[in-house]
Amino acid sequence: MSAALETVNLAAGLTGNIASVGYGLAAIGPGVGVGIIFGNGTQALARQPEAAGLIRTNQIMGFAFCEALALIGIVMGYAYK
């Protein structure tokens, strides 16, 4: 952990690794994003059931793009020990 982070931890009275807090913050964005994608995907499916295949493919692709951020967050917790 860098010196600056160390100081912040001391000032806030934190002990241990701050990475878990960081991951909590990092998960907010992707969480909202995945919610939007599946919400709108379901809406699209309800409006136009014929296009189910196309919608589902794009839905999963959007989900993958969005989720990548959360996953990078998980890995970074280990990278910045």
């Binding site: 993958a64 989720e67 990548a68 996953l71 990078i72 998980i74 890995v75």
Partner: peptide, 13 residues
């Protein structure tokens, strides 16, 4: 990078 990390991180987690 994301192409590889997406698969890796999912399985890692």
């Amino acid at each position: 990078f994301t192409h590889a990390v997406r698969l890796f991180a999912n399985m890692f987690a």
